[in-house]
Every structure is written in structure tokens, then in C-alpha cells.
Design a binder for these strands. Structure first.
Lengths: 243, 243
DNA sequence: TACTCCTAAATTGTCAACAATCTACAATTC
DNA sequence: GAATTGTAGATTGTTGACAATTTAGGAGTA
């Protein structure tokens, strides 16, 4: 029998995780300063690893680094939402296409992604935020099927972005139809399985558009109108369905 | 009159630049180890900034980081080429679309991108590698027109990737028709200027496809055939034109 | 008051020493 | 001889001290 090689994370990654969570959970607010000394005292470590953790968060865009002046938690805005969803749409199209083709050539391991979908089924009707989180997990697993390392990683990054939006823009997926969501996912998986790339893309793009629509629900008409006046929206998302 | 705030790079960034160049120029080869002590001695600095520089290069994918075992210069492969070009194609489509729309709304500043194009005109008929580099510059400036920070940054990253490919896969743009290249770029800029997004996308995608084709020229038929058997290629690039 | 200049405190940047971990190779066992 | 174990050297990880820089606030000036 063989064991799976365990590779532990570095201290810096562990620290970055903690700080990231603190931001995502709202313990740290946009504009807050991250002071190395302070953090090193509360984490009971030296400044070195803390520094490294802050750099990690900086490349993720969660904090802004100003030379000689430390790091501050950065603030997202509406434009970012549109850009991130646009990226998820097109990176997803590539990954889903690739996965469809891989499925035709060799057998594709749908184990992980099926598991995520199962988790979503179990959560139907429950907490909305939990469903968002599970949906993001499902999507990540789906995109990983494409086995394209850069795209997979970039997609993972946009999931962090969405976490930020959910927290700081007050975005919610309330009232979304969980069952419809899941049945769409099932169709998507099926399309990939039989190698129907164009159908898979269609479903994928539809899902992203629905996500954007759900995101926008809680906002006042004025805000939404302003948002949909932005150039990106016109082209990538079906604005007429939303208003 | 106002001066532009000059923001000097941090030591770590400076060091990363030096090491990056060393890799891109072939002084460091894939598999080579980056030993902090060694580097700190030759750069006459301590290990701290060197460490930071290595982490920067790691996020760029130029080196691979192994916990407690240091960093090694990473080796690219053909799959990476396809993925990177696929990303450039679709991120470019978004940026170019956005730029077209921005052009209709407000006036778009084409100054920088025009300048890059001018530089390409001057270089026509000269060194092929220089033309690659200028073309990459032009493309970056073009994508920056979209004013989408994440996409712009990601695109910049793929330019580094291509630098790696050029160096380590022996890829060349020899024999490419520089004049045709430039006239295509002119058409693309015009399309953006008049807000014709779909035409701009078409030209953009065509350019990426041509780039891939040029990339592949130096390789033996066997290699190219093998390459074009890979799933990604079938769908995203017009393989029948290439063989 | 509004402005500049100056100084002290806070904070980041850098460094060299020490601790922890890994690698390569010799010693040991079967 | 092959496989395993032990060990020294090399290398990364961490730390606390010091240097450089920025920030905030007060004194001085008009």
C-alpha cells in the first residue's frame, strides 16, 4: 500500500490564509493597515514570515503594497465585478472546451466535480451563502477538468475576488433557484462527458450570466442602471434580461 | 506644469528583474538551482531581498519553489504554448471589445499604442527577434486600452511566458511578413477607433492564430503534427491552415 | 490662520546569526 | 551486493537587531 505524499504549507502560506480569512470575514476592512510588527506579535512569529504572507496577499490583490509605507487592505468596486465575471466566462469557455475534447480522447475523471455537485444537492434550500460557496467550489473543480494549469490557477484567483465582492459589496445570491442551478450543472457535465463542447460553452456562459444577474438583485435600480451603462456589460452580459 | 511621481522599484523587484533577464537570456537554464547564499553574495546584498525576488519570479512561473529545498528554474513545454496563446486570444477579445466601446463613449487615448506601432514600422526588415519584442509591446499597449486592470496584468504575464518560449523552445518568427503584420495592426486600431468591436475581435483572433503558426514553423513535421493532435489546438486555432 | 521647517516616533527595509530541514554519501545490516 | 540506516555538510527558514524612510505633530514665521 502507498500513502499520499503530504506536503505541508509553508508558514507564510498559513499566515496568508489566516489574514485572508480575516479580510473575507470582515475582521479587517478596506483601508486598514497591516503592520508587520503588530501581526508578528499576535501570530507569535517574527516579521519575516509575516512579510512573506503580505506579499502573497498582494499578488492576490487583497492588499495594496506601497513601498516603505506598508500594506493596506484594498477596496473592490463594481468595475472589478464585471471584469472578474468576464474573465470567468472566457477562461471557463476554454477550459470546458478542452475538457470536452479530453473526454472524447481519454476518459476524464469526473470524480471530484461530481462530489462537489453532490454537496450542492445536499445543501438545496439551506443557507444561501453556503450555496454560493459550494457553487464556487463546483465551478473550480469543473474548470480544473480542463487540465490547463494557468487557467485553473487564474480561475481560483477570481474565486477569491468573488469572496471579496460578497463581503464588501454586500452581494447575495438570495432567492436564487437552487434546483434549477443544479440541473444546469448536470446538463453541463453531461455535455462535457459526451464531448459536446459548444453546448457546454452555451450552458457555461448562461450560468455566468445568471450569476451576474443574481449578484445585481439586491441593488437599487439607480445603481444597477448605472452599472449596466458600463461598456463591458452591454456586450458580455444580456442586459435586457436583467432590467 | 506637473511631473509624474517617480516611484522607484523595491530592491527585490530590481533583483527579480536581473534574475529574470538572466533566465530569458540563457545565462540560467531550466533545472538550475537558485541558491540564496550564492545570489546574495554576487548581488552584494543579504538573503532577505533575494528571497523576496525569488518569490516574485515564482508567482510569474519562471522558477519553481519547493519547500525547504529551494527554487529551480522551471522548464516550459508545448502544452504551455497552447494555453498561453488561448489565454491571449480570449483576454484580448475582451479587452479589444471594451476598448471599442470606450472609444464610442469617450475619446480613447491611442497615443501609446500608436507609438509602439511606429516603432514596429521603423524596424521592418530588420532583426526578427526585435520585431517579436516590438510586437509583444504593441499587443500589451493595445490590451491596456481596454482599461481592465486584471486582464492587462494577466496579459503582461503571458508576455513573459512567451519570452520563455522564445528562449527555451527555440521558437522564432523568422520569415514572417512584417509589412502584413503592421497593416493588420493598423486595421485593428481603426476598427477600435470607430467602435467596430466584432471586426476588431476578428482581426485580433487572426493575429493570434498567425502568431501560433509562425511559432510552429521551425519545428519538424513530426513535432508539429504531434502538437496539433492536442485537444486545445483543434478548437481554438485553425489547424487546417497550418499543415 | 496658513504655511514652512524641523524633530521624534512609528514603521518598513536590510542584515547577519542561529535553527530546522534536506541531500548526498558513508556505514551497517541482511 | 542491495537495501537500509546514520551522519556531516549544504541550504532554507526564522529571528532579533539595526538602518533607512515615512508620518505626524509642534515650533517658528509671515
Amino acid at each position: 500500500m502507498t500513502f499520499q505524499a503530504l506536503e505541508s504549507q509553508s508558514t507564510a502560506e498559513l499566515l496568508a490564509e489566516q489574514i485572508r480569512d480575516a479580510i473575507l470575514v470582515g475582521k479587517l476592512h478596506p483601508g486598514d493597515r497591516l503592520i508587520e510588527q503588530e501581526l508578528s506579535e499576535s501570530f507569535k512569529t517574527s516579521r519575516g514570515p509575516i512579510r512573506e504572507a503580505i506579499r502573497i496577499l498582494a499578488t492576490e490583490g487583497l492588499v495594496e503594497l506601497r513601498k516603505n509605507r506598508g500594506a493596506i487592505v484594498s477596496a473592490p468596486n463594481f468595475d472589478d465585478v464585471l471584469e472578474v465575471y468576464a474573465m470567468r466566462m472566457s477562461m471557463g469557455s476554454i477550459a470546458v472546451t478542452h475538457a470536452s475534447q479530453l473526454s472524447l480522447e481519454s476518459e476524464l475523471d469526473l470524480g471530484k466535480v461530481t462530489k462537489k455537485l453532490e454537496a450542492m444537492r445536499t445543501a438545496v434550500g439551506g443557507n444561501a451563502n453556503r450555496m454560493i460557496s459550494l457553487d464556487l467550489d463546483f465551478q473550480s473543480a469543473l474548470i480544473a477538468l480542463g487540465a490547463l494549469p494557468r487557467i485553473t490557477e487564474m480561475f481560483e484567483q477570481t474565486a477569491v475576488d468573488i469572496g471579496v465582492f460578497v463581503r464588501f459589496l454586500g452581494i447575495k445570491y438570495d432567492d436564487s433557484d437552487h434546483k434549477a442551478l443544479i440541473s444546469r450543472h448536470e446538463k453541463l457535465l453531461k455535455a462535457i462527458k459526451v464531448g459536446n463542447a459548444s453546448q457546454a460553452i452555451e450552458i457555461w456562459n448562461g450560468h455566468i450570466q445568471t450569476s451576474v444577474r443574481e449578484f445585481m438583485k439586491p441593488f437599487s435600480e439607480v445603481e444597477v442602471n448605472e452599472l449596466f451603462e458600463r461598456p463591458l456589460m452591454n456586450n458580455l452580459f444580456e442586459m435586457e434580461n436583467v432590467r
